[in-house]
Each structure stands twice: as structure tokens, then as C-alpha cells.
Design a protein around this nucleic acid. Structure first.
Lengths: 189, 189
DNA sequence: AAATTAATAGCACGAACGTTCGTGCTATAG
DNA sequence: CTATAGCACGAACGTTCGTGCTATTAATTT
């Protein structure tokens, strides 16, 4: 059985990732988080020691949720083309289901920190790179030439779909990205 | 000759768009802006009356710069396929030259406000929609079927290139997006 | 049940936030 | 010359930020 602190910490982070997906990692304030969880600022703060540590822990928690919801399920497919398709499907599903309260967590924090050097930015960068790298790997295994190109395109389409959905409120978003993926990754190629 | 206030206001906004492209429209604080411009908070504030008005004015200024640097030059090409290609070229050039200090202004503020209802979000949404709408128009004029699909893809690739450049620091970004565009919009189709 | 440790609350801090106010320049207009 | 308007200033408002301390409660171990 895990200690009390670990349980509380987990509950804090669960909420933190959703707040951050909407307000960003800077907009994620300790006071607000404490209020929402009915605990004191100082009590919550003690779990992390600094705001930056809270941000880093939030990133880790978000990575965990992303892995559970997108990566792991797709990994049940055999490597290569099938898994690549599964990644796309799973990512779309993740967008539609709203796994994070504010849409794609990584799209939100990525553009927030892309020009702010430091450990937080480094962690975000590593997270995104893990995703694009995995796409590229599977494309390469599938025998696709220019796997890097394909990974870039799939990643970009995901960003675009997130914006169309969240900012523009465009209902065609899902159909549009499905069309683009189908053109680029025809079934059974 | 324009009034003194208009001159000052313009200078403020010129700086504001660059700060906002890095720190976001919330990170754009009146105190910081005043410090950078060697003027008082209150003096600067008087030009806008509220932070939200400053944000809206900053958006308008950014739209102006984007128009000058990307849209207007491309509009010298004839409508249709040529202009569509010119939009892509110009957008890439805009990214590479760093027209805004923090990369693509619209990518930054778009994901910042995509879940925060209000006039600021509405203005950002309208700005992005003007861009995707113009892409779609030119695609339609070029006789491309499913112009909305193409506009979505081009827009998405722009977002992706911005992230690859800014967050990942990936030098292949420009080559990758050029490849994707060339595949989708072959010369002289 | 007592002792010890771990976890939370309470309180205060300096700084920065957006905003308001009263005041002083510096031109132009009468 | 004098009156007036435009523009910017410094000081202060109340609030919230992140971050320290010091108790006090809760959980765990003896």
C-alpha cells in the first residue's frame, strides 16, 4: 500500500494536468489548485517544494496519461504499418474524447514554452520528441521511405485538428484529418 | 502628421506583439512592457484603458504585420494555384526570418486562448479563420476539389513546422515542410 | 496506548499584478 | 500672454503570486 502523501500527490497531479491543459503551465497556480482541491496552499506546496517542480511533475503525469490512452493501446498492434495506423486512430480518439480538459495537453504547453529555456521546456521537448520519434520508428519498420517526413506530417495534422476543434470550433476537423491520413496512409499499403 | 498619442501607441504595440509572441497574451504584462519602453505603467495603461483592450490592440497589430509580411506580397501573384504556392512560400519565409520574436504569433496565442471564451479568443479565432479561409478560397479558384481539406493540411503543416523549429530545434523543419507541400502541391499542377 | 514521524494548516513575507488617482509638463489656441 | 487640452508621471489601491517558517493534526510504529 502506498503512503498517504503519494495518494494526495496523485490527486493533485490528476487535477493539475487538466488545469494546465486549459490555462497552461504558468496559468496553473498553486492557490487555485489548492482551492479546487479544498486544501491549503502551503499543504499542497509542501508536496513539491517549488512551482517548477510542480510543473515538471505535472508534465510527467500528463505523459503517463497520454501513454495509457494513446500509446499503450496501439502497442497491441504488430509493429510497422498497423501500429502506425493505430497511433493515428488512437490520437484522434484521444482528441474527440477530451482526455484532457483543454484538448491536446502537448499542443498547449508546447507553444507556451517553446521560447522559454529551462528544465520545463526541455521536458516538454523530450515528450514531444518521444512521440514523433515513435511515429518515425514505426514508419521506418513499415518500410516507408522518408519516415521522418511522414512522422512530421502526422504530427502536424494532429496539431491542426486540435486547433480546428478547440479554437475554431470547426466540426469538420475530425473528417478533415481522417481524410488527410487516409490519403497519406491508405489502408493495407 | 499623426498625433503624439498615435505614435506612442504604435511603438507600444510594435513591442507588444513581439513580447506576446514569446510570453503569450497573458504573459504580456503592462509593467514589463512599460519597463522595456522606458515609460510608466500608468502612462502606458492610459492608452488602452484595460488589459483586455491592450490584448485586442496587440492582436490587431499582429494581424497587420502578418498581412504585410505574408499575405500582401503573395497577392501580387495571380489568383489560384500560383497565389496558393506563394502563400506557402511566404509563410515559410516568415517563419525562417522570425518576423515575430517568438515564432508564429498565431500558433502561440491560438493554443493559449483556445479554451478561454471571450473577446480575445474570438479575435484570435477570426484571425486564424481569415487565413485558412483565404487558403481555401485560392484552392477553390485553382480548381482543386476538396479545397477545405487542402487548406487544413497546409495550415497544419505550418503549425508543425513552427513547433519543430521552436520547441524541438529541429533543423530539418523547413526541409520537411517543403517536402510535404511539394508532394501536395506539385509545381505547375 | 504511547511515542515518533509524516502530512497538513496557519500565517506572514516581498514582489508583481491590473487599476485608479492626482499632478505636472508641454504644446497649441484664444 | 494666458487658458486649455493632451500626454505622461509617481504613488498607492487591493489582490494574487510563489515561498518560507511554525504549529498542529493525522498516521504509523513500537
Amino acid at each position: 500500500m502506498q503512503t498517504k502523501a503519494a495518494t494526495t500527490r496523485q490527486a493533485i497531479l490528476e487535477r493539475a494536468v487538466d488545469v494546465a491543459s486549459v490555462e497552461g503551465l504558468e496559468g496553473l497556480t498553486i492557490g487555485r489548485l489548492a482551492r479546487e482541491l479544498d486544501m491549503s496552499k502551503s499543504g499542497l506546496f509542501a508536496h513539491f517544494g517549488s512551482k517548477e517542480e510542480l510543473q515538471l511533475a505535472t508534465l510527467q503525469a500528463a505523459a503517463g496519461r497520454f501513454f495509457e490512452e494513446v500509446v499503450a493501446p496501439a502497442q497491441e498492434e504488430p509493429e510497422g504499418y498497423a501500429r502506425l495506423l493505430a497511433y493515428c486512430e488512437r490520437y484522434l480518439d484521444y482528441l474527440e474524447r477530451g482526455v484532457f480538459a483543454g484538448g491536446c495537453f502537448w499542443a498547449a504547453v508546447g507553444s507556451e514554452f517553446d521560447d522559454r529555456p529551462g528544465p520545463v521546456r526541455d521536458a516538454i521537448s523530450a515528450g514531444v520528441r518521444a512521440w514523433t520519434g515513435e511515429l518515425e520508428n514505426q514508419a521506418a519498420i513499415a518500410g516507408i521511405e522518408d519516415a521522418a517526413e511522414l512522422a512530421f506530417e502526422i504530427y502536424s495534422l494532429g496539431l491542426g485538428a486540435n486547433t480546428y476543434l478547440r479554437l475554431l470550433g470547426d466540426d469538420r476537423a475530425v473528417a478533415l484529418i481522417r481524410g488527410a491520413i487516409a490519403r497519406r496512409l491508405p489502408p493495407r499499403a
